[in-house]
Design a protein around this nucleic acid. Sequence first.
DNA 1: GACCCTCTATCAGAAAAATTAATATCGGAA
DNA 2: TTCCGATATTAATTTTTCTGATAGAGGGTC
Lengths: 307, 307
Amino acid sequence: MRSLKQIRSFVAVFEEGSFTAAAQREGATQSGISQHIRHLEESLGAELLVRDGRGVIPTAHGERYYGECVAILRRLDLAEAEISRASALGGEVRIGLMPTFTRAVLAPTLDRFIAVAPTVDMRVTEAYSGVLTDLVRKGELDFAVVPGFQGAVGLSTTLLIRDREMLVASKNRLGQHLTPICLKEMDPLKIVVPGPQNTRRRTIETYCASHGVAIERRLQLDAMMGTLDFVASSEWVAILPGVMMVNDLDGARFDIRPLDQPALYSDFVLIEPTRRVLSPAAALFASLLRETTEQTITVRQARMRDA
Amino acid sequence: MRSLKQIRSFVAVFEEGSFTAAAQREGATQSGISQHIRHLEESLGAELLVRDGRGVIPTAHGERYYGECVAILRRLDLAEAEISRASALGGEVRIGLMPTFTRAVLAPTLDRFIAVAPTVDMRVTEAYSGVLTDLVRKGELDFAVVPGFQGAVGLSTTLLIRDREMLVASKNRLGQHLTPICLKEMDPLKIVVPGPQNTRRRTIETYCASHGVAIERRLQLDAMMGTLDFVASSEWVAILPGVMMVNDLDGARFDIRPLDQPALYSDFVLIEPTRRVLSPAAALFASLLRETTEQTITVRQARMRDA
DNA sequence: GACCCTCTATCAGAAAAATTAATATCGGAA
DNA sequence: TTCCGATATTAATTTTTCTGATAGAGGGTC
């Protein structure tokens, strides 16, 4: 009577907030999902979801049942992972990274990963956090690394790294490379910022507003690589996570100075679907990514002490 | 791909140790069970059970997977119980009791239960522990109360009550009713015992052998009521759990004296299928049964102090 | 309020999966 | 070897699931 398909359908509808979206995610039709939910509700003898013409809202029963269902799916996934993938580093790993990570730490991580797990079919998607979050929830990525945030339905979150934010400008424009800098004491900034849909935008604006940083002009640029290129060849500056800039610590192209008074830190978290368990290969990649990132930060701190 | 039917089939085969028995329990055919297991093994890419011509033996993978599966089924059952049965005292309750319990504590328990849960369809099966255990494992009983023992696959065990064993004889044959008695100091016993398939047989033999109790003659009688009747009208004695004898504390029919030096205690446990969760009604009955039994024991202890 | 847009429910036919009964096969015991 | 009790296999059948089309319900907009 009860089936796992019904449960998976319910979890998908709950997380996506919509039958239609759930159908897409599960590779099914809206009609099929609708019937699964109906049968589930009938056999439980209780409503789980209220259809409100504009999507669905779970009932109290639905909320509780969802929690159990996710836990059950996860446990099943874990049990099966133990048997079939049993420590074999194979299969495919699909991860999502923001440009922050693809710029500098991806390459060395990949080097190490491929050396250890040569047979894994590796796929990296570069996108901004909103897109990555959706892809992870849909199950199209094993995990993604995104800015720390306040949770999302169906995702589990683990802190991967905490990194310092840097003021970046072209060479010889900021003075003492790699030494702390207090923005409040500078001339008004001509600053490049990402669009409002980007989590970083709010972080930066909040920092500037609450610490009296003067801004002369603001330029909205939603391309990370473009931002760096533009900054390198102009008098504009940008605020970027330090982890992006590890290959430019020599000062050949950029002046890089950590924000100070107060320092600004950004969290990056690993998100994965709660209903699933990371494969050994994916878990390995995640730990290598963390290690590599931590090493680059350590290297930078050493350089900063020297400077 | 994976389905709950497959998982339930696997759990049944594991617990019954046989495809054929599992098929019966699940109300399916042996062929269907066989296919479910095959699909499960194929999709996991691992053997779970070794067919050895004389039943099945789980592999190491099978053992681990079984544990997870039971936990998952139980959790699902719990989740659904919370929703559909939500504290409604209804449906049916099927329990199994040994004659030990049906003789004296069943009636008052039923009285109390029916007063509180008048709409429940109540079914009591009287049998010895082996039969009850099988019925519980097959899911045909919600729970049963049997002598404490060393676990069985697929069953969870909870101690219900610990009771003192009594020497029972017809009136005026044992001397001081309700006072402790040391068997070693008695003349050789003419004792009625149950057959070797009964758990009590071993308990009694062990006690007698290890505490120097002399036995003149032994009579094997596998009927509890018959035993009592025979004892009441002869010079034979029996060793019985105190809880059976609460209605005979007045000494009108029997002399009853607790074994002493050392006292002999018997545990009675509640067994239920691990994969399921007791319905609220069943749980209520279990707790009433325990309460009632404890009360009878308390009453007896008061009488014993007086004696 | 009429209209439109988006979402879910329902239905019947098509496809897929589970189930069965019959039978083959295997392994151990006498 | 032969038999017995068990599981595996197979093909036909039954049941369930899935789909595509369509109907209906609920908000937003003009």
